[in-house]
Design a protein around this nucleic acid. Structure first.
Lengths: 129, 129
DNA sequence: CCTTCATGTTTACAGACGTAATCGATTACG
DNA sequence: CGTAATCGATTACGTCTGTAAACATGAAGG
């Protein structure tokens, strides 16, 4: 679901990702609004947020729609696609492309809460059908 | 198990990581040996591998032990620590720090093979005790 | 001994990134 | 109207990364 164009390759950096999160939360947004949401939290100036927005537009990760004198920005890639891509990268790079070792690792390092275990168990049961 | 010093912070880059993998496979190794293993596969020159080794030494990710004229390199950080750190970073950044959503995402995107499911199920059973 | 190879160290350099200031066009307020 | 506040675009700049060549030094071979 929602996996279309295998994206234009352009990687999204961590700073840019913070901007994406704002737009995934709510969009479209103006540069100032994004800055209020993200810049505030990360101590960025409006100028910085604008730069990040430009780069994201260049990477075709977000789209602009003119609204009077300014732009409204919206994500072009779905969060789930991004998240899926990043997850896959990690699993490929560190776990030979298989998810079980990742799970095993999380388990071993006690990164799994009881709640996680319960939810995963429930999901497994679902998948079993 | 094996989680000591919270590391000196220095992040390991992707190119450097390839070098680490070689050393995790077998160590200690000389620069030339690492180059034969990694450089070969990635098309890097010996010079490039040497640079990466130096940077890793600077980051205290690997240690050197002089052997006559040259150095033998060995990892200072355990692979499981590195892998754990990277996994945690991903889970924190994309899934609010909780593993269940990651699992759910992998499941939904069909990144889980039957074998993965079986193994995870087995692990769960283990953890249940 | 002198030349050549092997090896670690230093220097290089373009492109990506984080972070921003400045510029030019506009709009809005006084 | 004139001037200040906005907004996107352009330019800046230091650091990090990927990729490597140049250099110095010691070893090895003839």
């Amino acid at each position: 679901m929602s996996s279309e164009e295998p994206d234009t390759g352009e990687r999204i950096t961590e700073a840019e990702h913070a901007v994406m999160e704002a737009l995934w939360l709510r969009s479209p947004l103006t540069a100032t609004e994004v800055s209020d949401m993200v810049g505030r939290a990360r101590g960025w100036s409006l100028a910085t947020v604008k730069t990040l927005l430009s780069r994201l537009v260049a990477k075709q990760a977000i789209a602009t729609e003119p609204q009077g004198r300014r732009f409204l920005y919206s994500p072009m890639i779905a969060r789930s696609d991004y998240v899926g891509g990043e997850s896959k990268r990690l699993v490929d790079r560190l776990f030979g492309g298989r998810a079980a070792p990742l799970f095993a690792h999380l388990a071993e390092s006690e990164a799994l809460t009881d709640r996680d275990l319960a939810e995963i168990e429930a999901l497994l049961k679902e998948l079993r059908k």
